[in-house]
Design a protein around this nucleic acid. Structure first.
Lengths: 174, 174
DNA sequence: TCGAACTTTCAAAATATTCTGAAAGCGATG
DNA sequence: CATCGCTTTCAGAATATTTTGAAAGTTCGA
């Protein structure tokens, strides 16, 4: 199944990570490191690191079977929840530091000090505004415990329903 | 200015591309290949390829100065318009092919043929639904000639205004 | 048609990222 | 406290991506 390779790009996580994640998502039951190594044909080290990364992203969790020393791993089963976790992390890792740098740069070149920096600064401000808005929008989507983006979807258009044969989130409450 | 390196990740384009783009955005005036080579200290080939890629993404355009054979390049000056172009391209390049593959896979394992594939297929359907919604949402954001996301921002919350000192889109039409 | 002035291409080199596997760690158990 | 079963680490190998630069291509004016 090469599809999962593609999703990696779309989601901004690395290829093997995506494959491990996919395997957990699709099989729907807890798997241990050896299962993953075998099914994906990757090394133990790689499996361990990918799993750890997925744990850091908060889209996979540890599980244990009683009477078994091995660690099993479980994947969040709701796509929207997964998505929210990913957005949360990417904002934290990419947007926030970027904003910090932008502020810093802007403060380093105040118009009073650097003549002719005015248009320059207007553009910087536009960027800062843009990313601030993205950051706030993201926070909105991410924070509610319920399903935030589905709400957004219906807000933004009249196409709330899914296109495929089943409904999008299994646990949607009427 | 190492900041632009960061933006590359956030936007999903390559590092040098982002730097070229940034240079054009910040300087705000048309630059030719040699300007870019010099300011960014990159090879001619690299400059040429990055520019071409930016043209393909539709966020940079060619310009000419009369009486000069050289090609100059100009960058879209409105951040939201840039963003829309990027979303449009990423959907076309990543989401659409992904959706196609998902459909294909689902059709390859119909429940009638593969017993026990039912839960499997439910999860696939959930994914298909998710990406379909993303795709439609994206289309909504991208299509209007006006500023779609700012509208979205105000729709989704009460924080329509920017955080910095100037307003976000210089050429907003009343 | 020629050549000057640019631009594009692409194979090879440089760089960056990802993966492997053996060794070290860690806790539970005898 | 020695060993077993399992997990993590990390230097080096394998792979993938990006960059270079020289050669080929293009365009235009004379």
């Amino acid at each position: 199944m090469a599809v999962w390779g593609q999703m990696a790009g779309a989601w901004g996580i690395s290829r093997t990570m995506a494959e491990v994640h996919a395997l957990l998502y699709i099989s729907g039951e807890p798997l241990c490191t050896d299962d993953i190594m075998e099914r994906l044909d990757i090394s133990r080290g790689n499996a361990s690191m990918s799993l750890r990364a997925l744990l850091d992203w908060g889209i996979v969790e540890r599980a244990h079977k009683r009477g078994d020393r091995k660690e099993y791993f479980n994947c969040e089963q709701d796509v929207w929840t997964m998505f929210r976790a990913i957005v949360r992390e990417r904002i934290k890792r990419e947007v926030d530091p970027l904003l910090a740098s932008l502020f810093e740069i802007r403060d380093l070149t105040p118009e009073s000090k650097v003549p002719g920096a005015t248009t320059h600064n207007e553009r910087l401000d536009a960027l800062v505004d843009f990313f601030s808005t993205v950051e706030k929008l993201g926070a909105r989507f991410v924070s509610p415990p319920g399903r935030g983006l589905q709400l957004a979807a219906s807000l933004l258009g009249s196409f709330a329903g899914g296109s495929s044969s089943r409904n999008a989130s299994p646990e949607a409450k009427p």
